[in-house]
């Protein structure tokens, strides 16, 4: 009951719903960056929606199945191929033992989720099977996959139904230009009024170094900070603050030049001013932005953020109902 890694792809990791509850001691949430698509893939193959699956960033792996299995690929558009023959995304697919599963280019989106009926059966660490690469624990030996790894597959809890698919209205949108809704704070008051305007007016481009820790954005106008005498404990750069906790989704702008949005493997705190936080409902969308995709930051208030969260939950409920 295993899957052999013939080629690992760029950064393929085991991820599930994540590891909440330890951020206060510096251990981040981890888990699938696009939690919605993780659920699409899992529900398609009859898993609990939070089962551990493979998150494939920007380029797919090549895998040899040593067991019969049922798999589904959701999230980015990355056509699976069985012994070279193209298959459908967002569909439960039966794989025979001995088959080599590879993937076409990632045509749209940035992260594909490959769920296998029964889930990836790596050990649970602090309540999760998710990989935390910086901490070198969780997932498969605490790291991204490498050639020759053998992934253990769990026992399916339900009999999967090959051929089952999900309506296009229930998958993640994969646009190349994405509005990201932001609640200003906690240090928004530190930038000038002019910069508060340009930050939301400018179009930002996702940088090639964007990863699970943070997503760096370029090409907008630099931000200027209100003059002040830096307080004791803050660094000398005006973008520095006395160290504070970093929320997921918070946007820091070191030197005022390139905004970085923290994601699920974020460090828990530090000394850069956070000028706003991307709302929880839009964190999945960040996961699907390739380098060179464009983002616009859209200012919202807490009521709008909570309404968006409720909308995302309602979509998840429709997905669960469709795949029940």
């Amino acid at each position: 009951m295993s899957i052999e890694v013939l080629r690992p792809g760029l950064a393929t990791t085991v991820q599930d719903a994540g590891r909440p509850g330890y951020y206060n001691v510096g251990i981040p949430l981890s888990g699938a960056m696009d939690q919605y698509s993780l659920r699409v893939a899992n529900l398609l193959v009859g898993n609990d929606e939070t089962a551990a699956a493979l998150e494939c960033a920007l380029m797919g792996p090549e895998l040899r199945f040593h067991t019969d299995a049922v798999i589904a690929v959701a999230g980015s558009t990355m056509t699976p191929k069985f012994d070279g023959v193209a298959q459908a995304c967002n569909t439960a697919l039966a794989v025979r033992a001995g088959t080599v599963v590879s993937f076409d280019f990632m045509r749209a989106g940035a992260r594909a989720y490959v769920a296998i009926a029964g889930g990836i059966d790596v050990p649970v660490v602090l309540g999760s099977r998710s990989t935390y690469g910086l901490g070198a624990f969780g997932g498969f030996q605490g790291r991204k996959l490498a050639v020759g790894d053998r992934l253990p597959v769990g026992v399916p809890q339900r009999t999967p139904t090959p051929g089952r698919s999900v309506d296009a209205s229930l998958v993640m949108p994969l646009d190349k230009e994405v509005p990201l809704r932001v609640v200003p704070g906690l240090y928004f008051h530190r930038i000038t009024d002019a910069s508060a305007q340009t930050f939301f007016d400018d179009t930002w481009v996702i940088a090639p170094e964007a990863d699970r820790i943070g997503v760096r954005c370029r090409s907008g106008r630099p931000l200027e900070w209100r003059p002040r005498a830096q307080p004791f404990g803050a660094g000398s750069d005006p973008s520095n603050i006395v160290d504070a906790g970093y929320p997921y989704g918070s946007i820091q702008v070191p030197g005022g030049v390139e905004p970085i949005i923290l994601h699920r493997d974020a460090v828990s705190g530090g000394g850069y001013a956070m000028i706003g936080t991307v709302i929880s409902a839009d964190m999945d969308r960040i996961a699907q932005m390739q380098p060179n995709y464009k983002a616009r930051f859209v200012r919202v208030d807490m009521a709008q953020a909570l309404a968006a969260r409720a909308e995302r939950r309602a979509k998840l409920d429709r997905l669960r109902a469709a795949l029940a």
Partner: peptide, 9 residues
């Protein structure tokens, strides 16, 4: 020759 992944060439 097709590019296998996004980034900077």
């Amino acid at each position: 020759v097709l590019c296998p992944l996004p980034g900077t060439f």
